[in-house]
Design a protein around this nucleic acid. Structure first.
Lengths: 351, 351
DNA sequence: CTGAAAGCGCTAACAG
DNA sequence: CTGTTAGCGCTTTCAG
């Protein structure tokens, strides 16, 4: 005997949401029949289908995916967990958008979270994702090691790392050619006669920062420029701090004639400082990572452009391939950067 | 008798995820006891708690939130659905970040999706959110009407609209003072001697576009400037189209001496076109919505600045207040814009 | 083509 | 302090 909760047309506190049972009762069919219609399974007579659809529409029925996920045998939730630098940051936004686009094609929704380069936060967020039983994880990580993910990976959850390489786990990874890009930029500055080049870097906990710094130093070495000629300033965590660092730097005796900035926000601080010092046309600048309007500044800003959308797309593609049964060994995908010459990087050395 | 699925240490296909039952069995306690420990409920002896924690750790147990949500009496999933213009767009990113910050404080995760100003997409995404039983909805809408949400709102799901006003539903709404901001910008241009002012607008389906256009025209009217002096070009859906429109406009006989651009991407198209035409210092420009580096351009760009983070924060605050029982009538929150004078808007009229 | 029974993994009542 | 019995809303058997 199927007892349907009594409709209470008078004192409707919060009108309860319709369940499949109620739809079944209203349509005068069995529970499973409604399930069949809702899920578009075959072998339901046209007439039955019509009745069920009518009942569902009348009750404004929308199936509860959580309940479905719980019983479905594939045990999939059709959700993905995405962890990026910050959802407010355009670089992350491009990755996010790529992931969303692929996810949409696969009927899956994405939980997005911001890392803020905080290892504790990383753990907490990943933990939440797993509790929510996301089908896959796409992560920009910052913790010293991602070994905490091993049990989850072991258990079959596909994980892809994007932008930064993980430590302690072997998983699909999508990065750009950080050191090569930095090297190219540095060589470009050397070719324009610069010897006193400054590297302005982000927090050293960040893998990309270390890679870019390495590329910078290697390029100097390859050109036979004594490392003593180079200044590297690190742990510049935002544009104001970068701004201050540049002001300080340019006030020194052997001030650099060129600056390589390893990250977006730092580039902005650098540009603002040079503008304030009236050195915008005198000191060469190349920034890692492109940004909107870089072409409209004067001089326009030469950058090492990344392709974050592409990175996100590859990461998402890997996740869905894994979910589709691909069990090839984890691979490292490198998305090439591209030096875009716009002017600021072509200023020749002076003095 | 609790039958624990046999461990299969040899052919471990995908090592099954531990369930609460398994933890209970391993710890030698009842199911509910594990539940108590996991949820930090009181009245569990220290020793029992220790045993349970050990078992959970050993099995790498993480509770399944979907299952929990299904049975918990408050019927909450601790998720929010957020629909913004595009997660790749910095304006949306700021809103998203605000929502995430508030959500994190409330232990809830957020599903984020991009609208792309597509009404069909709007319906589909909201539908998915509802199927996933999000606790609340924060939406930038574009469909002609949001009446399709009435049953859901009726049923108690809090909905807040952000950036754009809904049609056909009464719900909390957070917008900026679009027409006032546009009016202020227009008055500013008039004050600098401009009479031939062009309005460059986005797609007319978009509520904010129409509001800004209205503010523009009203300001002209208030100043007694014949509307015939004004050119309004609309449906400029991206920067390239805006660029082309400006080239065309400036080639005309009575070319405008000032441009008011109603949106970010359009502003960029405008600035690029004026640069290409060599008119950057001759034609005044004010853009609606601030953007990074606007202060570094030459001339620096005068804008009507919005505060998207604030808008997102208010919307999220409303949602959590509603979930907390606030049943005051839906309200409309207006976040004030601010005219930031940087130079491009202070260029005086010529000819 | 259709439906009844069992159970997904957990929480909600109740007993002990 | 602890455990048992019912479900949550759906999908999966497996019979009709």
């Amino acid at each position: 005997m199927t007892t349907v909760p009594p409709e209470n047309p008078s004192s409707r506190t919060p009108p309860q949401r319709a369940t499949m049972r109620q739809v079944a009762a209203l349509a005068g069919v069995g529970l499973k029949t409604v399930s069949r219609v809702i899920n578009g399974e075959s072998y339901v007579s046209e007439e039955t289908k019509r009745k069920v659809d009518a009942a569902a529409a009348q009750l404004n029925y929308l199936p509860n995916l959580q309940a479905g996920n719980l019983s479905r045998s594939d045990r999939k939730t059709r959700t993905l967990g995405l962890l990026v630098g910050s959802v407010a940051n355009p670089f992350s936004g491009a990755i996010h958008r790529a992931v969303e686009d692929l996810a949409t094609e696969h009927g899956t929704s994405v939980f997005a979270s911001s890392l803020d380069d905080d290892p504790t936060r990383e753990r907490r967020i990943v933990d939440t994702f797993v509790r929510r039983r996301v089908d896959g994880l796409i992560l920009s990580a910052v913790a010293r090691s991602q070994a905490y993910l091993l049990p989850e990976i072991e258990r079959g959850t596909p994980v892809a790392f994007v932008d930064r390489e993980p430590v302690g786990v072997d998983a699909d990874t999508v990065v750009c050619d950080n050191s090569e890009g930095a090297g190219l930029a540095t060589a470009h500055l050397l070719r324009h006669g610069h010897r006193r080049i400054a590297f302005l870097g982000d927090r050293t906990e960040i893998w990309t920062e270390r890679e870019r710094r390495r590329g910078f130093l290697e390029a100097l070495g390859a050109a036979g420029v004594p490392t003593s000629a180079a200044t590297t300033v690190e742990n510049l965590s935002d544009d104001d701090i970068a701004h201050a660092a540049v002001i300080r730097l340019m006030g020194q005796a052997d001030a650099p004639t060129a600056i390589f900035s390893s990250q977006n926000l730092i580039s902005i601080g650098v540009l603002r400082a040079l503008r304030d010092l009236g050195l915008g046309r005198r000191v060469a600048v190349i920034g890692f990572d492109d940004f909107p309007l870089a072409d409209l500044l004067d001089p326009a800003v030469t950058v090492v452009a990344q392709d974050p959308y592409r990175m996100g797309a590859i990461a998402a593609e890997r996740i869905f391939a894994r979910l589709d049964g691909d069990d090839s060994p984890p691979a490292r995908h490198v998305v090439r950067t591209r030096l875009i010459e716009r002017g600021s990087g072509e200023i020749r050395a002076h003095g």
